[in-house]
Every structure is written in C-alpha cells, then in structure tokens.
C-alpha cells in the first residue's frame, strides 16, 4: 500500500536516506536548478526541471576508468614496471525526485550500455547500486512532449519509488521491494481510499496538460523515414542558426557519447572518460585532418538520425524521452519537435 509524507517532513526523510546512501536531489544552485549531491537539511526543489538530466548520476561528466602507476627500481634503472587498477564505483546511491522522462533516460542507458553489445562495466556497477525515487510530473513546460515519444509524465515503471504531490503532501508508491526499504515508517502515514483517488485525479490532470506535436508511428517506420531523409536539403535549412555548441547533447538524458583521455601526473595518472558531443567538429576530426562530419548540418543530422533511426535499427529503442531540455536551452531556438515533424512528413 502507498504511504504518505507531509512536505515539511521531506528533509527528515532525505536526511535519513542520506545517512545510508549517496543521495542526489534537485536543488537550486545560484540561479540554476541542478540534480546535486544532497547535504542534510538542504532545501530541495521538486517543481523545477533540473538543467541537466539524471544521467549525470550514473554517467558522470568526468569519470575515472582506471589508475596506472609506473614503478622504477633504482638498482635497475633501465627497467620500468607498470601496474593498473580499474575504478569500481560501487557506492550505494539513491536518485531522488526526478521526473519520469529522466527515469526513461536511465532505462535508455540500460539498453545501450548494458544491453546485447559490450557491457559498460562502470554504468553497470553504478546502476546495480542505485535506487530511483521518481516524482509524477505536474509541471509540464512549454517544451515538454514526453507522450509524443511514448512516455508518460506520471508513470515511471523503471523507478523504485513514485511520489505524487497532493497539495502539501506526497503519496509514495513502492514499485520494488528495494524501493519499499527506503520508506521510513516513522515519517509516513497510511493512505486512505480518498487520497488514492485524489492521486489518480492529479495524475489524470497532468496527462491532459500535454500537447502532442507529432504522431510518431511505429518505430521501424520512423527509422526508415529518417534514413530516407538523409540527403534532404532540409537539414541545412533547419540548422542554419546552430552554433555547434554542446548544450543539446549535454542536457540530453539519452546522449551518451564520450571521449577517453589520459591525465598524467609524473609516474602515475588516470584514464578518464568525459562527456563528448557529436555537435563539436572535433568529435570526428581524424589525425589526418579528414573529418567525415565537418559541417554542422552533418553533425546535427547525425545526432537526430542516431536518436530516431540508428538506435531503433540497432537497439529497438528511441533516443528521445521528450524532456524538452534541448529546446529550452538551445541558445538559438532550434526546436527538435518541428524538425521531427518535418522529417516525418517529408
């Protein structure tokens, strides 16, 4: 049975979780809303859509893959020994207060990083040590379109807990047994039938708020349409204003491209994995100087074709959760929804 917690008890609950887990929660930080590590007592903001998606908790922007160390024995100066050790990010973690679109983003990562292909050990370790407490979204923004890409603002099947705000109270549904362990009996009250009905009503109201900018159709047909539109002159037109910055990729809950580089400090150092962006021209620049995606429309076309075609072909999944961050944060107002609509209609 779901339980309920009053808004003014949320910090007590979070403090209790934070005593056992590394805890991520949405918080206001100097004019930005960010999913950040929680420190006891800090005010959380459940009404904002954090600037960055929840991917950063499971796929950090900068992450150590391994550490290496060269050793020299002074008696044999001509010889060098080398040892390496893999990072093991197995800290118990709770991601708390994220919207269903961000939960979809995490499910997407599972498909790509721990699916049929090579397994991403680091994501796998983090994911298996992480619980997710989602919150039903009652704050659709003008850029939201989760339903158009198969999502829902009020359900998050891959989360462990689902919160629904009703006035000054949150109804908390445990979706998994592990999720149920997070519910601290002392802080919660039982939920009566009336409140369950109220919860249903809140969810239904949230559903009716969303606009649907396009009808996607079946995934294979979408993949096909994007593939056929590869040579369309529309890409150049649609990306004329694009600045080739990394905002859309960095704020995206499904963009997962990365770079691997070494950071040396004398005889030791780390191999790092950092977010990369397919919108940067240096992303595909080869040592020879050749660049298969030298022009920005080629990069933008690849980004969208990846999300709406290649991922469907390879993983049977759509690379978009409809969170709308790329639209909201694009400095030059490029609206992915209108581009999708155009390609689907072409």
């Amino acid at each position: 049975m779901p339980k309920a917690i009053m808004q003014d008890k949320l910090n007590d609950w979070l403090d209790s979780i934070a005593s056992k887990y590394q805890l991520w929660a949405p918080q206001d930080k100097d004019g930005a809303c960010l999913l950040s590590p929680y420190t006891p007592g800090a005010p959380v903001n459940l009404k904002c859509r954090p600037q960055l998606s929840a991917k950063k908790a499971l796929f950090p922007q900068t992450e150590c893959l391994l550490k290496y160390q060269y050793h020299k024995d002074k008696s044999k100066p001509e010889e060098t020994e080398l040892s390496i050790s893999a990072a093991n990010p197995n800290q118990k973690t709770v991601i708390w207060g994220i919207a269903p679109c961000d939960v979809s983003g995490i499910s997407f990562f599972e498909n790509v990083f721990i699916g049929a292909g090579y397994q991403d050990t680091y994501f796998k370790t983090r994911r298996s040590n992480t619980l997710i407490a989602a919150i039903a979204c009652q704050h659709a923004e003008s850029t939201c379109f989760c339903e158009a890409v198969g999502g829902s603002p009020v359900s998050a099947p891959d989360a462990d807990l689902l919160l629904t705000r009703i006035d000054h109270e949150y109804v908390v549904e445990a979706l998994t047994n592990e999720g149920a362990t997070l519910i601290d009996e002392g802080l919660f009250t039982t939920v009566e039938e009336a409140k369950l009905n109220a919860m249903q009503q809140v969810k239904e109201a949230a559903l009716s708020k969303l606009s649907k900018p396009f009808e996607l159709g079946s995934l294979p047909s979408v993949a096909d349409k994007f593939l056929k539109a590869f040579e369309s002159p529309y890409w150049k037109e649609a990306t004329a204003a694009c600045l080739s910055c990394g905002i859309c990729t960095f704020v995206c809950p499904t963009c997962y491209c990365f770079n691997i580089t070494d950071e040396a400090q004398g005889m030791h150092g780390q191999r790092l994995r950092c977010w990369d962006a397919c919108m940067f021209s240096t992303y595909t620049l080869e040592a020879s100087g050749h660049n298969p995606r030298n022009i920005k429309f080629q990069r933008y076309r690849n980004r969208l074709s990846h999300k709406f075609s290649y991922l469907i072909t390879n993983n049977n999944v759509l690379g978009c959760t409809g969170c709308g961050r790329c639209i909201k944060e694009c400095p030059v107002g490029i609206d992915l929804r209108s581009i999708i609509s155009h390609i689907l209609a072409e």
């Binding site: 100097d30 930005a32 600045l243 910055c245 962006a277 021209s281």
Partner: peptide, 24 residues
C-alpha cells in the same frame, strides 16, 4: 570557484561570441 564548478564546458559561450572565430 562556485560558478566555475557548474560549468559543463559546452562551449556555447565561445561559439556564440561574435569575436571568437578561431574555430578549431
């Protein structure tokens, strides 16, 4: 320090700048 800690190096500040034209 607090401001720089938030930067995600998306390079938008550089790319939008009308006088930043060194490109690659």
């Amino acid at each position: 320090d607090k401001e720089f800690a938030r930067c995600i190096r998306c390079k938008a500040c550089r790319n939008v700048c009308p006088v930043c034209y060194c490109q690659n």
